[in-house]
Structure formats: structure tokens, C-alpha cells
């Protein structure tokens, strides 16, 4: 049985994997996380009273989440442009159905986020507790990281066509990014659990047990972003402009 990859996703991934810029982005990402991992080795962990090993790993995962979410959405929104990768407006004039284009972009974001998470697995292995019991909770946290990175990218994909000004689009992207990561910290409980950092921490720690519910709004945002992208492709085809 062969899995048919969405043609839009296949094209995007080819462009990204062949791009020297993306390779450097990937190197930068791995290098920064490597530095954090090296600085987390003893004696650093012991010099900060109260900062125990679990918290250090959690800190690493949260830092990684920030990187994964930013890079995934920045590529989707066009803030980091990849030579050869087609944007929504380019794809709107092709024969691909709008649904294929919208879902293809969603898949591109999800697979790229997964690739970023996978690239950091050797670094996680450098810090992780050496118990077998720690593997499921780590895998859970890494999977959640991918899920959390996708909604912003889905909205970002729509923004590429909805806002023509690069500057304005970048500003909106940063506002959304900061709003998601920073503003949600000031929400009152239980809304504060919508903060992606808290969700990853909860997924790693396993508490509160209802943490998967906090993913629902993100899935809804991803669905909404994809639907908006599909409608926008239709609008472009119908009216010639977004």
C-alpha cells in the first residue's frame, strides 16, 4: 500500500528540503537547542537551587515549542521565504481543487513541524531521564508540540493571501504569535490552560489530566484557518482578487 501525499504538500516539501536557506534555519535551530542542552548538563543543574532535572527538560521542551511554532508559522506566512515554494495566490491559478490546496498547506505545516521536532530528538535524548517510563510522556509532549504549531501556520497561510503588505502581514503574525504565547498567560484559570507552554508542560507532566481538552481550540483554529484558505482560493478564482 502506498500513501499518496498531497501534491501541494509534496511540492512544498521538495522546495524546502532542497533549500539552502531552510538548511541553515534548521542548523540554527539545532545549534541553539544544542547550546541549551549543553548548558543544562551538570553542574549547571545543581547551581540553581530548586531547578531540578525535570524542570530543566521541561524548560528545554518549552523553548523548543517556541522555535517550532515560530518557524512553522513564519514559513507559512512567508516571513521566511523559500525559493520555489508556491504561495496560495500562485496555487489559486492552478487546477488543484481549493480543498487540496488548503489541506496541502496544512499538511506542509504539520510535516515541517514534525520534522523540526524529530530533528531535536537527539538533543532530547541527551537530557531525558533514563527511565523507560519517561518515553511515553516525552513522546506525548513532542506530539502536542506539533499539534500546537499547526494552527498558527494555518492562519498564517490564509494571511499570505489576505494581507498583501509584507510588513503588515509580519506584524499581524507577530501579534498572533505573542498573543498566543504571552497574552494567554494572563488569562484566568481555566482559560490560562490555553497557553501552549502550559499545555506542553501538562502533556509532559500528565497533570491536569484534562489537558487534552485544551487542544480543542487549537484544532478549531487550524480547521478555521484551513477553511478560510479554501474559501479564499475560491474567491480568487471567482473574482480574480482575494
Amino acid at each position: 500500500m502506498t500513501i499518496q501525499l498531497n501534491p501541494v504538500t509534496r511540492g512544498d516539501l521538495r522546495s524546502r528540503l532542497a533549500s539552502p536557506k531552510i538548511l541553515w534555519v534548521l542548523r540554527l535551530y539545532v545549534a541553539v537547542l544544542s547550546l541549551l542542552a549543553v548548558f543544562s548538563l551538570p553542574p549547571e543543574s545543581g547551581r540553581l537551587p530548586g531547578l531540578v532535572e525535570t524542570e530543566l527538560l521541561q524548560l528545554f521542551l518549552l523553548f523548543q515549542l517556541g522555535w517550532v511554532a515560530y518557524l512553522t508559522s513564519a514559513l507559512a506566512v512567508g516571513e521566511i521565504a523559500v525559493e520555489g515554494e508556491k504561495q496560495i495566490l500562485d496555487l489559486a491559478v492552478t487546477s488543484f481543487p481549493p480543498r487540496t490546496i488548503a489541506l496541502g498547506k496544512l499538511w506542509t505545516a504539520a510535516l515541517f513541524a514534525a520534522a523540526l521536532v524529530a530533528a531535536a530528538v537527539p538533543l532530547v535524548a541527551l537530557l531525558a531521564p533514563p527511565e523507560v517510563g519517561a518515553i511515553p510522556q516525552l513522546l506525548r509532549a513532542l506530539l502536542v508540540m506539533v499539534v500546537l504549531a499547526v494552527p498558527l501556520a494555518a492562519v498564517g497561510t490564509w494571511l499570505t493571501a489576505a494581507i498583501s503588505s509584507d510588513l503588515l502581514r509580519t506584524m499581524v503574525h507577530w501579534l498572533l504569535f505573542l498573543g498566543l504565547f504571552a497574552a494567554t498567560r494572563w488569562l484566568v484559570d481555566p482559560l490560562a490552560f490555553l497557553n501552549p507552554l502550559r499545555i506542553v508542560a501538562a502533556a509532559y507532566g500528565g497533570t491536569p489530566s484534562a489537558w487534552p481538552l485544551a487542544l480543542l481550540p487549537y484544532l478549531a483554529i487550524a480547521a478555521a484557518g484551513t477553511a478560510l484558505t479554501g474559501r479564499l482560493v475560491l474567491a480568487v478564482r471567482r473574482e480574480g482578487t482575494p
Binding site: R27, V30, A31, S34, A37, V38, L41, P42, P43, E44, S45, G46, R47, P122, L123, L126
Partner: peptide
């Protein structure tokens, strides 16, 4: 010392490994 630290040789090996991975 609050912690024994990681030996210099081990730190070098870790850095080389991460460099190779890059």
C-alpha cells in the same frame, strides 16, 4: 561544589557529537 560537574573530556565529546550532528 554544589555539583560534581561533567568532566572536560565528556563535555568535549558531547560538543563534538553535536557538531557532527549539525
Amino acid at each position: 561544589p554544589q555539583s560534581p560537574g561533567t568532566s572536560l573530556s565528556l563535555q568535549v565529546v558531547i560538543l563534538l557529537t553535536l557538531g557532527l550532528y549539525l
